Computed example of a mutant assay.
Amino acid sequence: MPAVPPEALLITVAPTGAETPKSECPQLPTTLEELVATAQSCEAAGAAMIHVHVRDAGHQPTLDLGLLTETVDALHEMTDLIVQLSTGGSVHDPLDKRLKVLDARPDSCSLTMGTTNFGDDVFANPWPFVCELYQLAQERDVVPEFELFDLGHAHALGRLLERYGPPPGGKVHCDFVMGVPGGMPGTADALVAGVAALPESVTSWSATGIGRSTLPVMLASLAKGGHLRVGMEDVLTISRGVPVDSNAQLVERAVALADLAQRRPMSPGEARELLATATSRRTR
């Protein structure tokens, strides 16, 4: 297939997360039916990948393998989106359960490159766990998205790739998660510094701004030629004091800003080519 053109923009939607209670945000998609409907509307709006956290019958975060597998299968059946499972879960999930997420056979998985303070909690990603998860992704032919919450995580990514080689397919995609209390700030200056610190082997990157940093990070990423992650996992307002109606609304805003930057949303097929998922490699 031809190379993905530079004006094509990967938009990832992160619709749910593990932090916001359903009781505080009824429009948050927490059931399988809600998640599938959200995925379909976001795909129609311009998203090409979905970053998935699963909730149980009580709307609580879970890493239950049966629910994860059911969700991956339903999203594959009902959409063309790349399905990326979170291996972070909630900050309280044990490391062994986080490793088993790959048993659900996603196209992609998140892989956070180090431990970081996360508000009042600690998001634990010790180096041995990072290495084990990466090798497991290589064995399972799952393409990782390397999550960078701080500048040191970019350096850690270089160490990981030097020690264990490239991901399946040879492409290296990472995402800057910015504005988390305890991580890098959600500013243009921080993003510029982060991009400058990336290993040369990185082939694409995106950026996520948490809360009020959403728009500054989105605009900075577009200006630097990066890609975007948006969604109700990361922000619950569309403007100051105005709640988000749906995840599709956030995707639509990203598409509108991209249009001003003379970029257009890439298709799921182009996204598979960009990330070299297993599906794209089988169809070449």
Rank of each mutant, 00 (worst) to 15 (best):
D189L: 13
G194P: 04
V195K: 10
V195Q: 03
A196C: 10
A196G: 04
L198F: 04
P199T: 13
E200K: 15
E200G: 15
E200M: 13
E200W: 12
S201Q: 15
V202Y: 08
T203I: 12
T203C: 06
S204H: 03
S204N: 04
S204T: 15
W205P: 07
W205L: 09
S206N: 14
A207M: 10
A207Y: 12
T208P: 02
T208F: 09
G209L: 12
G209M: 03
I210H: 05
G211W: 09
S213H: 14
T214N: 13
T214M: 14
T214P: 05
T214W: 14
P216R: 03
V217Q: 01
M218A: 10
L219Y: 01
L219W: 03
A220T: 13
A220C: 08
S221G: 07
S221I: 10
L222E: 13
A223C: 12
K224I: 13
K224W: 12
K224H: 14
G226Q: 02
H227M: 06
L228T: 08
L228F: 05
G231T: 09
G231S: 08
M232L: 10
M232T: 01
E233T: 05
E233A: 03
E233V: 11
D234E: 05
V235Q: 07
L236W: 15
L236E: 08
T237W: 11
T237C: 09
I238Y: 14
I238L: 10
S239E: 12
R240N: 06
G241Q: 05
G241E: 05
G241M: 00
V242Y: 06
V242N: 01
P243Q: 05
P243Y: 12
P243W: 11
V244Q: 07
V244T: 15
N247R: 03
N247C: 07
Q249S: 12
Q249V: 11
Q249A: 11
L250C: 03
V251W: 03
V251Q: 01
V251G: 00
E252P: 00
E252Q: 15
E252K: 14
E252T: 15
R253H: 11
A254D: 09
A254N: 05
V255I: 01
V255Q: 01
A256Q: 11
L257R: 11
L257V: 11
A258V: 05
D259V: 12
D259S: 13
D259N: 11
L260R: 15
